[in-house]
Simulated assay, not measured.
Amino acid sequence: MLPEPLRGARVASTHLSQASYALRQEALRRLIDELATAEPLLLEQNTLDLESSRDLAVSQIVLGWLRLTHERLHRIRQWLERLYQAADPWQQPCPTQPDRFQYAVPLGVVALVYEGLPTLSLMLAGMALKTGNALVLWSGESSRYTAGAIASLIEAALSKTRLPKAAIQTLSLTPASWLADATAVDLALVYGRSRFVAEQRGAARCPLISLSLGNTYLVWDGSVSPESVLNCIQHSHQANPDRALAVEKVIVLSNVNPSHLAFVINELTQAGYKQGVDEHLHRSYPEIPLVDASEWPLPYLDQRLAWHYEEDLAAAVHWIHQYGSAASGIIASSYEDCRAFYQQVQTPLVFINRPPQLERLDALVIGAAARGFQRGLFGLGQLLSTKQVYL
Score class of each variant (00 low, 15 high):
56 L>E: 05
67 R>P: 15
89 P>I: 00
69 T>S: 15
77 R>W: 01
53 S>Q: 12
67 R>E: 11
64 G>F: 03
85 Q>G: 09
74 H>F: 14
56 L>F: 14
58 V>W: 09
96 T>F: 14
73 L>K: 14
74 H>I: 12
91 Q>T: 02
69 T>N: 10
87 A>G: 14
53 S>V: 03
91 Q>S: 10
100 R>H: 08
58 V>A: 11
105 V>I: 12
100 R>T: 08
78 Q>D: 15
62 V>G: 00
89 P>Q: 04
96 T>S: 08
82 R>F: 14
72 R>A: 05
96 T>G: 06
67 R>I: 08
104 A>H: 03
67 R>H: 12
72 R>F: 05
98 P>Q: 04
60 Q>E: 07
83 L>H: 01
77 R>F: 04
71 E>H: 08
102 Q>H: 01
82 R>T: 07
83 L>F: 03
65 W>D: 10
59 S>K: 10
82 R>N: 14
68 L>M: 01
59 S>N: 02
79 W>H: 08
93 P>E: 13
55 D>S: 08
96 T>P: 03
73 L>Q: 07
72 R>N: 10
53 S>P: 13
79 W>C: 12
97 Q>Y: 09
102 Q>L: 04
95 P>I: 09
98 P>M: 01
68 L>A: 00
80 L>P: 08
105 V>Y: 11
82 R>E: 14
63 L>C: 05
58 V>C: 11
105 V>P: 07
54 R>V: 15
70 H>M: 08
81 E>A: 09
79 W>Y: 09
87 A>E: 11
60 Q>D: 11
59 S>C: 10
78 Q>Y: 13
66 L>C: 10
56 L>Q: 08
68 L>S: 00
69 T>H: 07
77 R>H: 02
91 Q>W: 03
87 A>V: 12
84 Y>D: 13
70 H>E: 14
88 D>T: 07
81 E>R: 02
68 L>Q: 00
80 L>V: 06
68 L>D: 01
101 F>M: 09
86 A>M: 08
101 F>P: 01
70 H>D: 10
63 L>E: 07
66 L>V: 02
71 E>G: 11
87 A>T: 11
70 H>S: 12
58 V>Y: 15
